[in-house]
Design a protein around this nucleic acid. Structure first.
Lengths: 383, 383
DNA sequence: CGACTCAATCGAATCGATTCGACTAAGCTA
DNA sequence: TAGCTTAGTCGAATCGATTCGATTGAGTCG
């Protein structure tokens, strides 16, 4: 990110509240205003229009019969008082709905958005919640003072690949009766699960590698916990892992290659894949002939690492990914990978939210990946 | 996006409200419950704990003196009643703050997130609003029934490259005294502006092209309006444009090349750039020797188009972009472009929001781009 | 012409918490 | 021991709108 910026002051505007206060003085209660920072309310508008607050409310909401004359009078009064319509905060209290769905992502925003899978999911989610008339509030699972899933006025919450440190907040929301949907998370009570067959899909991929004849295989995994610590994949770390998706995908591969080495990356990023790839390929031990990466971004990074070391893919090294992103600029490679329906996952989550908000039930969904053979995997070179 | 997914039903969970209702029956008011769907309130907790609601409130918020014994009693009562803490909706009404900052992007979510510049900006913005303890609510400027900037409980709103069709909503928010910050938008009254020197920067770029000796130059522009209509850049469209950034960048180029041809793209996407590039490079008219694209993504697309047509960059065609993204896989090219401080723009917007919410003033900021010479521009080939 | 209907409007309760000022009782100083 | 402070608690007003049931008046039908 470039920082060669120069911010230059030009003028200054006042805080809007002050602007507002000024505007109001032109209005009704000139000098006798008891509170200078007080904004007009529906009641004030109603009073000026000579109707009751209930009628004024009807005039604004349009629900219920109001004569044209009355409504015009109310609207005129509103204009006079510079009233900007019903306060959404009050509405959301009264209605019991805020129209906001929280999306909790474990990453920093920046990292989360760099993975096309997340974006596709969000897109699918937004598709459905938008149709529902709700907006998406982005939240991270760091509870650092900021607003969080249990302090924000949310109608529902979607958890995306979240760690267990959200347990307490989840419990609170469950108590409050706020619908909870989790995408690829360890099953939790009262949380609707949108699942992906990570385990099976990874096994499929590993089988493919096996069938090609590889025996020296290594893994590059997604982070195993919120700390996103890099390093070799030890048995201990594998056990301690709280990264649900990562663990499942490891399990799938372990079914075929119980003893494969591995490196843990700090995120689903090309740089991370490259870093891990360099580590694996320059190790003192026997160099792997195939690398199974837990995301396409990581796989691309591994390919870059191989290129940098003068290894040809797939001749000298087979590389497989996971996700099925179509990234520009990968040519001439076409990743061998498991294609996952990320957009559909998001949509399913959105539909689940809609169903739950509707007071009904919602069915957990489970999605499956499909194998896509690219040109980055091949039989190992005979010795 | 793959759609080869199979969603399979597994079990079903009830809507949380029903779960809640069920749980509550185990609690206090067994059969005589007047309203079955009623969740416990702070008042109920207070009653059970034998204290006043005010004290219970203090026990939860921690502000104000409460004896340890009392607090424990309140907390115990809350646990008994399965009370999940104060309702954020009620809090936000009472406090007059929701802790939510709206971000309005004109694109569909999907498209907006595909441009790294937007992500960088959002990241910078999230950085600051996060520190402020606020979350980001994603909104689009399509007013289709969904929640919008004037119906959501927002403390402030950041407009990102937004069209003028938001005028009415902007007016409403101004009335309400909600701080408004716009990034790269046509100056509006009462809206704090975070500007970029699009005009000057584009002229700089055009000068560079001119100095290289190009006379046959073409533009690929960003969308000129919310309709995102593609097509040749006519004088009429240029006049009618409501795309602020696009217009400014056109103006900068026009200063050097008043009569350059152009094609309007439907978004800042590689595909769009390619499409526009193909159009420009296969036209019946004289083929341009240089293309100035209004974003790096578009520029990359143009390069892809050139490659497809067997043209070498920069020998047969010079291509310049705008933004300064570092996209993996562009090798061996390094775009000639104007590097803009997107992250800093976002931060500045966030800081402005913070200042305005603080009741103070905020200074509009203006950022400048820096020229970066890559290897995609060169002197035109002599005839 | 009386009973009835329906549109238009109003009153009052309600959503669920926060907060200011008042009040009590205990601890402390002079 | 009178006078003061202070920690702890409570009442009541407030935030700003929505909504249900009641009321009024004009028009309609028989």
């Amino acid at each position: 990110m470039s920082t060669e910026a120069s911010a230059r002051t030009e003028a200054s505007i006042q805080a809007s509240s002050e602007i507002q206060a000024g505007a109001q003085n032109d209005g009704d209660e000139d000098a006798a205003a008891p509170r200078p920072t007080h904004r007009p309310t529906l009641a004030a508008v109603a009073a000026l229009a000579g109707v009751s607050p209930s009628t004024a409310s009807l005039a604004f909401s349009g629900s219920g019969p109001v004569s044209v004359a009355t409504r015009d009078r109310v609207l005129a009064a509103a204009a006079t008082l510079n009233y900007g319509g019903p306060d959404p905060r009050a509405q959301s209290l009264r209605r019991g709905r805020s129209g906001i769905v929280g999306v909790v992502i474990e990453d920093r925003l920046r990292d989360a958005f760099r993975d096309p899978m997340n974006i596709a999911m969000l897109d699918g989610l937004a598709d459905e919640t938008g149709a529902l008339g709700a907006g998406l509030l982005l939240l991270t699972d760091t509870g650092d003072g900021a607003i969080s899933m249990d302090t924000a006025p949310l109608d529902a919450v979607v958890l995306i690949g979240c760690s267990t440190r959200l347990d307490r907040a989840v419990a609170v929301l469950r108590q409050r009766g706020v619908p909870l949907v989790a995408i690829e998370a360890a099953p939790m009570d009262g949380v609707l699960d949108i699942a992906l067959d990570n385990w099976v899909a990874s096994r499929t991929l590993a089988r493919h590698i096996k069938e090609l004849g590889h025996s020296e295989v290594a893994l590059v995994t997604l982070p195993l916990g919120p700390d996103r610590a890099r390093g070799p994949l030890t048995a201990q770390r594998e056990v301690d892992s709280t990264g649900f998706t990562a663990s499942e995908r490891i399990r799938g591969v372990r079914e075929i290659y119980p003893d494969a080495r591995g490196v843990v990356a700090a995120g689903s990023l090309i740089e991370e894949g490259k870093r891990a790839g360099l580590e694996l390929l320059t190790e003192a031990q026997q160099r792997p002939t195939a690398v199974i990466a837990q995301s396409d971004l990581l796989a691309i990074g591994v390919i870059r690492a191989a290129e940098e070391l003068g290894l040809r893919v797939p001749v000298d090294l087979s590389v497989a990914g996971f996700d099925g992103v179509r990234l520009d600029g990968l040519a001439p490679y076409e990743l061998t990978t498991m294609v996952q329906p990320a957009f559909e996952k998001g949509r399913a989550a959105g539909r689940a939210v809609a169903a739950l908000l509707d007071g009904g039930r919602a069915e957990p969904a489970s999605f499956t990946c499909t194998f896509r053979r690219g040109n980055t995997t091949a039989a190992p070179r005979p010795l």
